[in-house]
Amino acid sequence: MKFAFKEIVTASMVLFAVIDILGSVPIIIDLRKRVGHIQSGKASIVAACIMVAFLFIGEEILDLIGIDVNSFAVAGAFVIFFLAIEMILGISLYKDDKPQSASVVPIAFPLIAGAGTLTSILSLRAEYYVENIIVAIIVNIIFVYLVLKSSQRIGRILGDNGLSVIRKVFGVILLAIAVKLFATNINQLF
């Protein structure tokens, strides 16, 4: 076991930026309005399981289906890009059947443990010890759970205008993450 505080903090900050749960508050509130109930605990646990599983077998799964990490990252960049466009422009590109409840889809995957998060986990694995990344995942999941649980309160405090501003600001941040993810990985493909 090689626990290193600096690695845990750095990995936590990277995951925090990519998961961007605060930027997702407007999406979560909108989902809560549509389906009435969000299973915060279930969504958090499933997201944590997906992230830890991907930490250990992500590359093997991608190898099995013939996809390299860089292709996965570029695909993740496109998904994040379109999510950011939705947030910034206030439009809806993704049409889904009305979900019965919001927990595994779309909250655990792809909102929390989406392509960007999974790609980041693979990138972190190349640099840091696994146990430090697991601690970083747990720290982020606890924060995600607290935000999911108090999303209605956060929504009331911020109001519609506050949520709109936060959504646009985090949309721009998400757009920047998408561009960086794309730029970092596109060179490796050619």
Rank of each mutant, 00 (worst) to 15 (best):
S164T: 12
L22E: 01
A108Q: 13
L31P: 12
N70Y: 15
K6W: 08
I154H: 06
A178F: 05
F72W: 07
I80A: 11
Y145C: 04
R125Q: 04
Q39H: 11
A176N: 07
A178T: 05
K6T: 11
M1S: 10
I91Y: 12
G41D: 02
I133C: 00
V52L: 08
I141Q: 12
I112H: 11
S151Q: 14
F81N: 06
L124H: 04
G36K: 09
S150P: 03
T119N: 15
P26G: 07
L189P: 07
I157E: 07
S92Q: 15
F16I: 01
T117M: 05
G90A: 03
A47N: 11
A43S: 09
I38E: 02
F5R: 02
I91N: 12
L163N: 13
L174F: 04
N70W: 06
I138D: 01
Y128L: 09
I141D: 05
S150N: 15
I177K: 07
F82Y: 13
E131Q: 08
G36E: 04
L62Y: 03
A4M: 09
F3V: 12
K6M: 13
G58C: 06
V130P: 14
A102R: 11
I65T: 08
M13H: 01
F16R: 01
T10A: 08
E127K: 06
L124Y: 03
V105M: 12
I57V: 13
I137S: 00
L148R: 02
F82S: 07
L181T: 14
P99F: 04
L146K: 13
K98L: 15
P99A: 11
A17R: 06
Y145S: 03
Y94D: 01
L31W: 11
E131H: 03
S44M: 09
L62G: 07
A75F: 00
Q100W: 10
N132S: 12
I157D: 04
R125T: 01
L64R: 09
I61M: 13
F16G: 02
I157C: 03
I80H: 10
A126R: 14
L158G: 11
